[in-house]
Design a protein around this nucleic acid. Structure first.
Lengths: 158, 158
DNA sequence: CGGCATCCACATAGATACTG
DNA sequence: CAGTATCTATGTGGATGCCG
């Protein structure tokens, strides 16, 4: 599974003094102070992840942009099951307004995650399908489900 | 890579003739009962994922709620590296206002993803740390990075 | 059928100022 | 230090209606 990650052995203390002149009272175990921050290598594999604010160039932001917006993951889920027309999507998600569906599809198209194919004639027909890039979101959706499920299980215990 | 998922054999057409007046033309195999859809089992492992709108009970929504909001993933990243005080977080994310940081931490606390520990005295000090549930978000953050990176690589090709 | 144009309601981010 | 209180600007979702 995607879950296997390393996660546990990565506590990587940052080493103190981050909080101004806390004097000599920094974390005893982190006596060696380094002004530079030590990042977990899975969490921040390279410099693009070491941002101090939400940068559109950060991979995490790119992925978030892909799934952001209400209904977006549901639209993606539908398209993961195969090409769908505008109307089919509306049937699958009955309480989603045409305007928002339109916005979502336009956004996904702009990010080249979805392709649009218009069939001329009457009635008109437009079919949407995931691109190769769009297919790359599948493991992320699976992980979202897995994580949410884990959180719910945690909460059920309490 | 991870893309290999089952995806391919999962075209699972919904009921046929989604287009026009299918009327009595429903899918033969799904002839019984309502317009039931066949879902991919990785994408929709159980009934909670088969929603027709964003339900707070859907695991995907639960996970999205955990990482939603500007700055949230950055705050989580900081806390993934160890406990941090309010001031340390501000130093790490200098352009994040106190108000929004406060809101994010309160939200994470409400979801029991973060714990708060006040140290009395002067100057005051409050330390935030991930709970066990909060730690469960780590693989998701890693997957967000991985996916975003894949999308960027895709775009670089074009 | 598949949209876009409008209008509206509300949520959210950021800046600034102030307090325990 | 660690927040809260305001105020404002902007974003976003949803409803409705029109049009190719």
């Amino acid at each position: 599974m995607v879950a296997g990650v390393v996660g546990q052995s990565e506590t990587v203390r940052v080493t103190g003094e981050l909080g101004g002149h806390t004097g000599s009272q920094a974390d005893p175990r982190a006596g060696n102070q380094t002004v530079s921050v030590a990042w977990s290598t899975q969490l921040v594999p390279d410099a693009r992840g070491a941002t101090r604010r939400p940068e559109p160039t950060c991979p995490v932001e790119v992925a978030l942009a892909a799934i952001s917006g209400r209904w977006t993951t549901l639209v993606l889920r539908e398209l993961m099951h195969g090409p769908r027309s505008f109307g089919e999507l509306r049937l699958a998600l009955p309480t989603l307004s045409a305007k928002v569906l339109s916005e979502r599809l336009a956004g996904l198209e702009r990010q080249t995650l979805v392709e649009r194919h218009r069939r001329r004639g009457f009635p008109a027909r437009t079919v949407y399908r995931l691109t190769g890039a769009g297919e790359r979101l599948r493991p992320l959706l699976v992980e979202l489900y897995r994580t949410g499920d884990a959180l719910l299980r945690d909460r059920a215990r309490r």
